[in-house]
Amino acid sequence: MFWVVFLLLAWSGALLACARLLRAAGEAAEAAASHRHHHDELSLYEAAYLAGGPERVADLTLLSMQRQRRLLLAHTGWVTVVDPVGRDPHERSVLGAFGPDGQEQVVCVRTAAERDPAVRALADRLGEAGLAPRAGTAQGMGEGIRSVRQACWLVVAMAGAALCVPAPAATTGMILCWFALPLILTLGCLAIARFEGTAHSPWASPAGQRLLVDLARERGVRGSLTAVALRGLRAVTDPELRAALAYGRRGRAARHRGY
């Protein structure tokens, strides 16, 4: 009956991991319920973050400045400064990525804009308003999912160890059936977590997603800055401008396709 010790270890790991994941999910639900958004409508930067994260904010900033003729974007992947005065923190983060000659590659400017504290401050404001998941909440869910995955492997390892121990009173089939129970528990938790993760945006809470839907109905005209904030580069009608903004994103093949 020594194999029962391995079964108890498997159950302990599975229950602890699933409890950790459930606690993280509960904390995420409480955080979402405790914050009510006070936005009547979203700004373009807010919509861009909720729809596509920091990368979308950087794309929107570059495109907005280009349309005002304050930046020149070339399909070759270079961007040139025309007006060196930033009108908001996001524009200043873009301009701060340029060297003294006023030229830089789009990929470098976009990366600098994505990592600027202005984007982090934007994310924090949206999180406080209940429109975006907080960083701590997402981290807790990720750690919970990783612990359940580790518990799955623990159950498999304990089952293998149990089969190596002589058990005259138990058959192989019976031992595997007992270990199948904690394995089903952990795999079920992972399946539910995966379903919940695909059903929700990584950037917007349910309240944030509802505001995005309302904004798309009101002002989501293809080619507008609002459409770019909501749908990304797919909404850019000029193929050369779309190629310039997409430069370096998916490698040389993507650039040649003009994505």
Rank of each mutant, 00 (worst) to 15 (best):
G53Q: 00
E104A: 15
L15G: 09
R23I: 07
A33R: 15
L8Y: 13
L42A: 05
C108F: 15
P100G: 10
G13M: 04
L21F: 03
G99W: 11
A29G: 05
S64T: 15
R70F: 07
T111F: 10
W78H: 06
T111L: 12
G102T: 09
R56Y: 03
D59I: 10
P54H: 03
L21Q: 00
V5G: 08
V85K: 15
R92H: 09
Q66I: 08
R92K: 15
S43R: 15
E91N: 07
R110G: 00
E46F: 09
L50M: 08
P84Q: 11
D40Y: 13
V81I: 12
V82L: 14
A10P: 01
E55D: 12
A25T: 02
A112Y: 11
Y45P: 01
E27G: 02
R69Y: 11
G96H: 10
W11Q: 09
E41W: 15
R87A: 06
A33D: 05
A14T: 03
P89C: 07
A97T: 04
Q68E: 10
V94G: 01
D88S: 09
P89V: 05
A74N: 12
A17T: 05
Q105Y: 09
H35E: 09
V82P: 10
S93Q: 08
R36H: 12
V106I: 14
G52N: 01
V107L: 07
L42R: 06
V82D: 11
G86L: 07
L7W: 12
L62A: 04
L71W: 01
R110M: 02
Q103P: 08
T61D: 03
T111H: 10
R36G: 08
V82F: 15
L9W: 10
Y45E: 05
D59N: 06
A31W: 04
D83P: 08
Y49G: 00
A19R: 11
L63G: 05
A51W: 01
T76M: 09
G96R: 11
V81K: 02
G26I: 02
P89T: 06
G102Y: 09
E104Y: 08
E41I: 09
D83A: 14
V81R: 03
Q66Y: 13
E55M: 07
V82A: 12
V4F: 11
L60D: 02
A31K: 04
E46P: 05
V79E: 02
L42W: 09
S12N: 09
A29S: 12
V107C: 02
V57N: 00
D101F: 11
L42P: 02
V5N: 12
Y49M: 03
T111M: 07
D40E: 13
C108M: 12
S43Y: 13
Q105C: 04
F6M: 13
V5H: 11
V5M: 13
L7P: 01
E41D: 14
M65K: 12
D88K: 13
R110W: 03
R67A: 08
S64A: 15
L15T: 11
E91G: 02
C108D: 11
L44G: 03
L42M: 12
A48N: 02
D59F: 04
L16D: 03
L15F: 14
A31D: 07
A25N: 01
F6V: 07
L22F: 06
T111A: 13
V107I: 10
S43N: 08
C18W: 03
V109L: 01
A31Y: 00
